[in-house]
């Protein structure tokens, strides 16, 4: 009996450093998860709550389902249209930044050419100027060439904003795929293009998708350019955000939910690409 107790005590003593490490790990995980989830929880509870529940404290654990605040947005003229615009602009931004960013990233990763560093810097420079500063001349130009108030025009601006990330993510992505694989494909009869298509692309696809998702999120969240460059074709963010910060609290929460839920659903749908990017990085 005593011997049993001793071994147990010994076992627990040996396990102690590991379990305290685990405790730290677990609490860090909890803090990080709460960091993300608590605001979303409060947003949802308040969006679903009645007007009185929003100013009340403490919050109910399970939200009541008073849809008055959310119903307001369903009837608010232009929300479905703006939601569609947001998806179109973000989708187009995603396609454009992959279409332009992937070749640029590939070139940076595989070729040595004069000005490569300058190019890297120049791509980053597009983020160095605040948009409100660029917006006026840009709008004048867009009005003159007829790009004003079009989804393509706005997507072009958002692509410029997403480009640095797309290029740099994809450059490091292609760098992590061994050149030898590509060379082996060449010796087996592939051209540069078909080797890229058959060998490099399948390996890089999850990473490319992740860069695309990044572009999507950047476009989804951008307000200023969207508010100035479009009028009839406003994105949801531009359409709601300016009004929301001066709206009453219940509508702020409901509008916030309207803004983030589609983006969350989208991220949820494509999450496996994001995770597989980590897979590549770990290989």
């Amino acid at each position: 009996m005593t011997s049993l107790a001793t071994t147990e005590a010994e076992a627990s003593a040996r396990a102690e450093p590991r379990s305290s490490g685990r405790l730290v790990m677990a609490s860090a995980v909890i803090v990080l998860v709460a960091w993300v989830l608590v605001p979303i929880y409060l947003l949802v509870v308040n969006a679903l709550g009645s007007v009185a529940a929003v100013t009340a404290w403490p919050k109910a654990l399970v939200p009541e389902f008073d849809l008055a605040s959310l119903a307001f947005f369903a009837n608010y003229a232009g929300v479905p249209r703006a939601l569609l615009n947001s998806f179109l602009v973000a989708g187009l931004t995603m396609v454009l930044s992959i279409g332009l960013g992937a070749p640029a990233g590939y070139a940076l990763a595989r070729f040595r050419f004069p000005g490569a560093n300058l190019f890297r810097l120049a791509v980053l420079m597009t983020r160095a100027f605040p948009l409100p500063l660029l917006a006026l001349p840009l709008t004048v130009l867009f009005i003159r060439v007829g790009l004003d108030d079009t989804i393509i025009g706005l997507a072009l601006v958002h692509t410029t904003l997403a480009m640095p990330f797309a290029v740099l993510i994809m450059a490091s992505l292609f760098m992590s795929i061994p050149e030898e694989l590509e060379e082996a494909a060449w010796t087996l009869g592939c051209s540069r293009l078909s080797a890229f298509r058959k060998v490099v692309l399948p390996l890089a696809l999850p990473g490319i998708a992740a860069a695309g998702i990044f572009a999507f999120v950047i476009s989804w969240n951008e307000v200023f350019a969207a508010a100035v460059l479009t009028i009839e074709n406003k994105t949801l963010t531009a359409f709601l955000l300016q009004s929301l910060d001066v709206s009453p609290l219940p509508l702020k929460f409901a509008g916030g939910a309207v803004l983030i839920v589609p983006a969350l659903l989208f991220l949820f749908a494509v999450r496996k690409y994001l995770f597989s990017l980590w897979g590549i990085a770990n290989r």
């Binding site: 409100p132 917006a135 006026l136 004048v140 009005i143 100035v228 300016q242």
Partner: peptide, 15 residues
């Protein structure tokens, strides 16, 4: 907001 309001109308006047 005043920012987008002025940027937009100034751009239109300029164009």
């Amino acid at each position: 907001d005043a920012g987008p309001f002025f940027t937009r109308i100034q751009a239109e006047l300029k164009a």
